[in-house]
Structures are given as structure tokens and as C-alpha cells.
Design a protein around this nucleic acid. Structure first.
Lengths: 198, 198
DNA sequence: CCCGCTCGTGAACCACGGTTAACATCCCGG
DNA sequence: CCGGGATGTTAACCGTGGTTCACGAGCGGG
């Protein structure tokens, strides 16, 4: 694990074999589910044999773990950054969160799919870590929603946040049939209407 | 398969062992994913050993297939029936569809979860059949949405329908923390706002 | 030039889990 | 009372797939 500390920077560099594997695996996992995809499949997708994977990852589970951790981190970091940059207006904060989530979902349909389907097939410790990050991201939304809906309690706003996630993340199930611009606009409008509904 | 034709009636009768298995399996599949739960697990959940399952189902896949087919059928039948009984007002039809979907999701969180996560791990023929039923159900929504949004084309309304499904089906991810009545009301309000957003 | 590290390969190992086989048991109809 | 179907159990079979092993090939630096 000597590269664990540099992983966050390394992926920004040239797409190393390691990154190719992660990307290909995300695609395959999204299509068939992580359990249905073999290491040989992942290897074949990047032009190597199955066992070659173990030069880059400790195990198949470690791959999935890193994948999910990265997604959760990107969402949390991106969400907090956007809110911080949006000023004090709650509605402005909400809108920036929505467009962020919509863009993320449209840019990474595979990651979104894996994110909330294969969390279950993860080692307890990794799953807990992912859930921690998820929870913090949800809290970012809950805070903003709390300012938009001063009369609602946190539990209600949590349900609101999850509902908006479900709405926006529906993209992978209906993607491709509509040009991206229109999809983004439609989802953003629906999400805002849903999030602000009494 | 001598009981195939009476299956729809039989499950309404006393919960036979067969029905117990289906229900327990749905629960387990929802929690861990169909691939992660073994035949022994399902058996244990109803108080028998693993191989006993094969007295009631041809295979584990057959279990999943019947499960998904039933869900899809119930949604399609329920949806068409509700719309037919709602009169001519498009908004009334939309509202009845929304409350139907919300009630279904709140009543069967496990089925909803399995429904759109384990469709991939199904034999091609069964998967195609399920997808056919799903498509017809979506079309029920698209028809209604088409009358609510006369200016939108079918592709847009399809995306709208999927987004509303995602919103309503987010229930399993946030269920339990809020009393059911409040959850139902909140989801219905959000769904209607989202579905009618321009 | 050659050590040693990186990245791969093909073969083998081994555990897990779906499935089948070979018996019990219970219970009902004749 | 008896035979047979429904329902289970335990043991065994066996394909699949994750993982390890022993072994190259390329390659950059001392």
C-alpha cells in the first residue's frame, strides 16, 4: 500500500494501468453488478489477464472499496465546496447542490449505479467508512434544506434529501434517450420543485 | 408447473411454505443482494434446510424470476386499474398514480429494492419478460404525463416518469426514521411537484 | 553489464454455493 | 392397514471464480 497516500493525486496524472482498471471495473460493475463480474472480465477489459489485477489491488473487494470511497469523497468535497462558494442565500445553495448532483450523475452514471447498489457487498469496515462519508454528504443537504424549510425537522429534511437523490440518480435508468442538456435542465427543474415542495 | 395458472390466487390464500420462501427471500435479497444470499440462508429464514427449497422452486433463479415477475405484474395491473378509475382529469390520474406508487413502495420496500437492483442477475428470457412489463407500466405514466404536459414529447415524459420513480422508490434508503403517514404525504407532495414542474 | 523492480502470464489451489441423490417421515385416501 | 405423494434431511458432486505461485520480460540506474 505504498501508493495509498498518493492515490488522490496519482489519478489526476496520466491514466495509469491502475486507473484504467478502476474505470473499466466501474463500467462492468454498473452493467452486471460487482458480484457477477469476474476478475478475468475486468482484466480482459483493459487487455490483461485476470491475475494481473493483483499487481495493482490487494483483492477484488479492495477495488470496490476504493471505488466507492472515491465516489463518496468526491461527492462530499464537491458538495461542501459548492455550498461554501454559493453565498448565504439558502435557495442559491440548494440550486448549486442540485446542479452539482445532476452533473455528477450525468458524468458518472456507472459510478452512481455502483454507489448505491453494491455497497452491501463490501467488508464491514469499508462499508462503515463509506457510510460515514455518505452521511456527512447528506448532512450538507440537510443543513441547506433546513434553511429552506425552517419549519421542518431534520428527519423530514433527511427524507427530502434522499428523495432528491433518488430523483437525480434515476439518470442511469433512462439515460441516452434524451440529449444531455435537456436531461440536465429537466432533472434540475424537477429536483428544485421537489426539494421546495411543502 | 401445474400450479402456475393458480399462482395468482394461491398466494392470496394461507401463506403456504412456497409463499413464505418467496417473502423471506425477498427480504434477504433486498438486504444483501440476490447473489450474496445462499440457498441455505433462504431455507434457514423459513426454518428448513437449503435443498428443501427445490421442492418448491426449480432453481434459485426461478425464485428471483417469479419474484420480479409478480412485482412487475402488480405494478402494471394496479397502475392501469387506478388510472381507469380516476376519470378523465389528467391531474387526478397523476395523483392516483403517485399515491399508488408511494403506497406500494412503503408497503413493499424489499420488493422495490430487489426490483431495480437484481434485474441484471436474471436469465435473458425472464429479464426480457420483466422489462416488457416494466415498459408497459412506464407507458401508463407516460400517457398520463403526456396529458399533463401537452407540449412535451414522449422521451421527455419517459425521463420524467423515471425521475418520479427514483424519487418515490428512495423510501427503502430512508425508511423507518419517519412515521409512515408523514413519509407518504411528503413523498406524494414532492412527487407531484416534480411531475408537474415545467 | 547486470541487479532488481515493475508488470504480466499460465497453471494450480481451494473454498463456496447451487444442485442432485438417496434415504426418512408424515399423512391422507382407498 | 397400506401405499404413495408431499415435504425434508444429510451427504456428496462439481462448476465457478478469487487467489496464490513460479516464472518470464522489459528496463532504468550503479
Amino acid at each position: 500500500m505504498t501508493e495509498a497516500n498518493t492515490a488522490l493525486h496519482a489519478d489526476a496524472a496520466r491514466p495509469s494501468r491502475r486507473e484504467q482498471i478502476l474505470q473499466a471495473a466501474a463500467q462492468l460493475f454498473a452493467e452486471r453488478g460487482s458480484r457477477a463480474v469476474g476478475v478475468d472480465d475486468v482484466g480482459a477489459a483493459v487487455g490483461v489477464t485476470g491475475p494481473a489485477i493483483y499487481r495493482h489491488f490487494a483483492s477484488k473487494d479492495a477495488m470496490l472499496a476504493e471505488m466507492l470511497l472515491r465516489i463518496s469523497e468526491r461527492l462530499l468535497e464537491g458538495g461542501t465546496a459548492r455550498v461554501a462558494a454559493a453565498g448565504d442565500d439558502p435557495m442559491a445553495q440548494l440550486r448549486t447542490l442540485i446542479t452539482f448532483q445532476v452533473d455528477f450523475a450525468l458524468d458518472n452514471p456507472a459510478l452512481i449505479t455502483v454507489h448505491d447498489r453494491d455497497l452491501g457487498s463490501l467488508a464491514d469496515e469499508d462499508a462503515a467508512q463509506v457510510r460515514r462519508l455518505q452521511r456527512r454528504y447528506v448532512e450538507v443537504w440537510v443543513d441547506v434544506l433546513g434553511r429552506v424549510h425552517p419549519a421542518s425537522d431534520a428527519a423530514t429534511n433527511r427524507a427530502r434529501a434522499h428523495a432528491v437523490f433518488g430523483l437525480v440518480n434515476s439518470t442511469p435508468h433512462s439515460a441516452g434517450r434524451l440529449p444531455r442538456r435537456r436531461t440536465a435542465a429537466l432533472l434540475a427543474a424537477m429536483a428544485e420543485a421537489a426539494a421546495t415542495a411543502t
